[in-house]
Computed example of a mutant assay.
Amino acid sequence: MSLHHHRLIKAVLLILLSACAQPVQARSERIISLAPNLTEFVYALGAGSDLVGVIAHSDYPKQAQHKPIIGNYQHLDIEKILSLKPTVILSWAAGNPSQQLAILRQFHIPIVDISPQHILQLPAITRKIGRAIGREQQAEVLAQQEQAQLDHFTKDYANKTKIRVFYQIWQHPLITISAKSWLNDALQLCGGTNIFANATTAYPQVNLEQVLSSQPQAIILSSRNKQGAKIWQQWNTPAKHHLILLNPDWISRFGPRLVKGIQQLCQQLNTLRLSKHDTP
Rank of each mutant, 00 (worst) to 15 (best):
H6Q: 15
R7C: 07
R7M: 14
L8I: 14
V12S: 13
L14A: 15
I15S: 13
A19E: 13
C20Q: 13
A21H: 05
Q22L: 15
P23Y: 14
P23E: 13
A26R: 05
R27S: 15
E29T: 01
I31V: 15
N37Q: 07
L38W: 03
T39F: 07
E40T: 01
F41S: 02
F41P: 03
V42W: 02
A44N: 01
V52G: 04
G53N: 02
V54S: 05
D59L: 00
K62H: 05
Q63A: 15
I70E: 02
I70G: 02
N72K: 02
I78A: 09
E79I: 09
I81S: 08
L82V: 11
L82D: 13
S83C: 08
V88G: 04
I89L: 02
I89M: 03
I89W: 03
A94M: 10
N96P: 08
L101Y: 07
I103D: 08
Q106R: 12
I109M: 06
P110Q: 05
V112L: 08
V112D: 09
S115V: 13
P116Y: 08
H118Y: 07
A124S: 15
K128R: 12
I129C: 01
I133W: 03
I133F: 03
Q137S: 12
V141R: 03
Q147F: 07
K155D: 11
Y157G: 03
A158I: 10
K160C: 14
T161R: 11
K162H: 13
K162N: 10
R164F: 06
Y167W: 11
Y167E: 05
W170K: 05
P173W: 06
L174Y: 04
S181R: 07
N184G: 04
L187E: 08
G191N: 06
G191L: 04
G191D: 06
N207G: 11
L208C: 02
E209A: 11
L212P: 07
L212R: 07
S214P: 09
S214H: 13
I219G: 02
I219L: 01
S222D: 03
S223G: 00
I231V: 04
W232P: 00
Q233Y: 14
Q234H: 12
W235Y: 15
N236D: 14
K240T: 00
H242G: 00
L243T: 00
L243V: 00
L243R: 01
L246D: 01
P248I: 01
S252C: 04
F254K: 09
F254T: 07
G255T: 01
G255E: 03
L258W: 09
Q263I: 06
L269T: 11
R273E: 06
S275V: 05
K276H: 15
T279A: 12
P280E: 11
